[in-house]
Amino acid sequence: MTETDKDSISLLGQIKDKLIGRKQDWSRDGRALTGTTAPHAQRLPPGQRLVSDWPVLDLGIQPEIPHAAFRLTIDGEVTNPVTLDWNALMDLPQHESVSDMHCVTTWSRYDNHWRGIAVATILDLVQPHNTATHVLFESHDDYTTNLTLEQFAAEDCYLVHTWEGKPITRQHGGPLRVLVPRYYLWKSAKWVRRITFAGADHPGFWETRGYNNNADPWLEERYS
């Protein structure tokens, strides 16, 4: 590797660090929000504001994964580890779901219509061992996040590929992202490429940078 290559890698790392720092500031200050806001005490978690569109926050990388190159590996403490291509994923039972989403940066959006694969289907497919207690998600941008198996197994959790009748765009985590609507949106990993069942907790990207490990919006579990 030449000195020029090393300098380029160092510069990219600095840029990524700045983007991460900026998004942490946005999260604390509630900035970079778009859409309209309205109070809704019965449905809106504390500290949240309602928006009508879908704001974009990421690590500064939006990987492009064509269907032909798509692979999802599900492994770890399971009886039947699998790697699914796009066609195999689409051959699984598909379901519709409607849920709200809540971002740690204080915006919420109601009544999102999704289509995808229920987590119950994934659990039936891979058969987690009795020793499995947690799940770790890995994304194509090297993002990671974690859940307990109990959180992931909730009936409203999905792997989704469609939002409001259209394929989820790259900026929002397409072609496939996790949907865990009961928790802040950082738990719903974009561009997911691997799901690992484990016998212990493995905190992810934001969880190791001061974010709360549980992320319940109704308890305002934003930070540790």
Rank of each mutant, 00 (worst) to 15 (best):
Y110M: 14
Y110E: 12
Y110I: 06
D111Q: 06
D111H: 10
D111V: 04
D111M: 07
D111E: 13
N112H: 08
N112M: 14
N112T: 09
H113Q: 06
H113I: 03
H113Y: 01
H113G: 01
H113N: 05
W114R: 08
W114M: 12
W114Q: 07
W114S: 06
W114C: 08
R115N: 01
R115W: 05
R115L: 03
R115T: 14
G116N: 07
G116M: 09
G116I: 10
G116D: 06
G116F: 02
I117T: 08
I117W: 05
A118P: 05
A118V: 01
A118I: 01
V119I: 13
A120D: 13
A120C: 00
A120K: 14
I122Y: 00
I122K: 02
I122L: 09
I122E: 03
L123Q: 07
L123V: 10
L123I: 11
D124L: 01
D124N: 14
D124R: 08
D124G: 02
L125W: 09
L125P: 05
L125S: 11
L125K: 10
V126G: 07
V126W: 09
V126L: 07
V126H: 10
Q127E: 13
Q127A: 05
Q127D: 06
Q127S: 04
P128K: 14
H129Q: 14
N130R: 08
N130L: 08
N130C: 02
T131M: 11
T131K: 15
T131D: 13
T131W: 09
T131A: 15
T131L: 12
T131N: 13
A132T: 03
A132Y: 10
T133K: 13
T133V: 00
T133Q: 09
T133I: 00
T133F: 02
T133E: 07
H134P: 02
H134E: 08
H134W: 07
H134K: 09
H134Q: 11
H134G: 02
V135I: 12
L136Q: 14
L136G: 05
L136M: 12
L136A: 15
L136Y: 06
L136R: 15
L136C: 02
F137E: 11
F137K: 09
F137D: 10
F137A: 14
E138R: 15
E138G: 12
E138C: 11
S139G: 15
S139V: 12
S139H: 08
S139C: 15
S139L: 09
H140I: 12
H140F: 13
D141Y: 09
D141T: 03
D142M: 10
Y143S: 05
Y143E: 03
Y143K: 10
Y143T: 07
T144Q: 14
T144H: 06
